[in-house]
């Protein structure tokens, strides 16, 4: 690992200014489970690392009926997954978080990190996409909100400007979420998704999100509109799963072939839809 300058600011302002002052080769450090690997392998070699874990407000996790759930950028996945409110009101998010890596990784990694890496297979991206989450961003020109589906641009590329820092993720409050998360992988524990999917039913509206099927995690909007207004019969589910698969553009890699992934999208979505219909 190449050496670098390390800063641990205690405010967002300070952190953002540091990033801007140090230029393009300054990198944010949060949980570090991705960045440290990339630094060890020499894929990323920042001159400056800005550790945001010293910023208190980023460790908050809070809920209110109006604003919904806020998960601070530095909340580790295990804390989020086992948070009482998350377990009660956003079970699908808790389940997705629990499927990331090992217990040791989840004690360090965060959901914000999971999505900011913009890995096509980020498990927590699917419940966030399905729940229309918003990413709260602090920047030199003030704060802004990015709808989660606009965050992902391409493989490992997000729509954040240099100097911007994600404060956390906000998930709207919903009356009653019926949701289901599916992960298809080679090994059950501690594995990357071959395909991951989340389906939520909110007042009769069905939303479908997929990961590991395209350059970014996606919503299967055609499948959603096909379902709209229909009763979830076996036939409708079968057809919706096919449509969802047609919206994806998976690749072949060492984990699976393209054909297998397409098959698995259908299976995952079918399982999701079956779970939410009852």
């Amino acid at each position: 690992m190449k050496n670098f300058e390390y800063f641990k600011p205690s405010t967002l302002k300070e952190a953002s200014e540091l990033l801007i002052k140090k230029g393009a080769n300054a990198h944010i450090l949060n949980g570090g489970t991705d960045l440290i690997i990339r630094m060890k392998e020499g894929i990323t070699s920042p001159d400056v690392v800005v550790d945001i874990k010293g910023i208190k407000e980023l460790h908050n996790i809070k809920f209110d009926e109006k604003e919904g759930l806020f998960v601070g950028a530095c909340v580790v996945l295990n804390d989020m997954a086992h948070n009482q409110i998350v377990k009660e009101k956003y079970k699908v998010l808790s389940n997705a978080a629990k499927s990331v890596g090992s217990g040791q990784i989840r004690n360090k990694a965060t959901m914000t990190g999971n999505i900011c890496n913009a890995s096509p297979l980020a498990d927590t991206s699917t419940p966030l996409l399905a729940l229309d989450a918003k990413v709260l961003v602090y920047g030199p020109n003030g704060e802004r909100e990015i709808p989660i589906n606009e965050l992902f641009v391409w493989v490992r590329k997000v729509s954040l400007e240099h100097g911007e820092i994600v404060k956390g993720v906000r998930i709207p409050a919903y009356e009653n979420i019926i949701g289901d998360f599916q992960k298809i992988s080679r090994r059950k524990e501690v594995d990357l998704s071959t395909v991951a999917s989340t389906v939520v039913k909110i007042n009769d509206e069905i939303r479908i999100a997929l990961a590991s099927v395209a350059p970014t995690p996606i919503r299967a909007r055609k499948a959603e509109s096909f379902i709209k207004g229909k009763k979830l019969t076996d036939e409708v589910i079968e057809e919706a799963a096919k449509i969802a698969a047609s919206e994806a553009s998976p690749i072949e890699d060492v984990r699976a072939s393209k054909e297998y992934r397409i098959e698995m999208i259908k299976i995952a979505v079918k399982r999701n839809l079956n779970a939410v219909r009852s």
Partner: peptide, 10 residues
Amino acid sequence: GRPVNACMML
């Protein structure tokens, strides 16, 4: 008090 991979932490 919580298990962490020491190789994944600076």
